[in-house]
């Protein structure tokens, strides 16, 4: 029984490593900052879920701590990435040439026009 759990845990550890590896490849291949941060955020969250699950199966005593760890990562990972991306956007990090549409820019320029009009 213990052996079986260890094997399943090992499988999850390998799956988590593969997820992280794919994220690394994605970081290298994506054309601009925004696409890169997309890949990094999703893969690191799922990769950590898989690694934590694997460790929990191999060492069942650590399971409660791993749950707390994963919940913290689940809440903080998207928030920190969102903040980094938002800061990048407002400091005008360039977007890839393939970018089709930018609604945020339109909304910002509209708001800008409104303030100019009210001042005049």
């Amino acid at each position: 029984m213990g052996d079986l759990l260890e094997i399943i845990g090992g499988v999850f550890l390998v799956l988590g490593s593969i997820t992280m590896l794919l994220a690394a490849i994605g970081m290298y291949r994506m054309p601009d900052f925004y696409n890169r941060i997309q890949v990094a955020t999703k893969a690191s969250t799922l990769g950590l879920l898989q690694v934590a699950l694997g460790v929990g199966l191999i060492m069942p005593g650590w399971a409660p701590k791993l749950v707390v760890l994963f919940v913290f990562i689940l809440f903080t990972n998207p928030i920190s990435s969102h903040l980094v991306a938002r800061a990048a956007y407002f400091t005008k990090v360039p977007m890839s040439k393939d970018t089709k549409i930018d609604k945020l820019k339109e909304s910002i320029s509209k708001a800008h026009l409104k303030t100019v009009k009210t001042k005049a």
Partner: peptide, 19 residues
Amino acid sequence: NISISKRVLAPSLPINPGI
């Protein structure tokens, strides 16, 4: 993750980004 892995591994890198 499955969909993003497919995109990353495809040689043509099929993305169509925008906000």
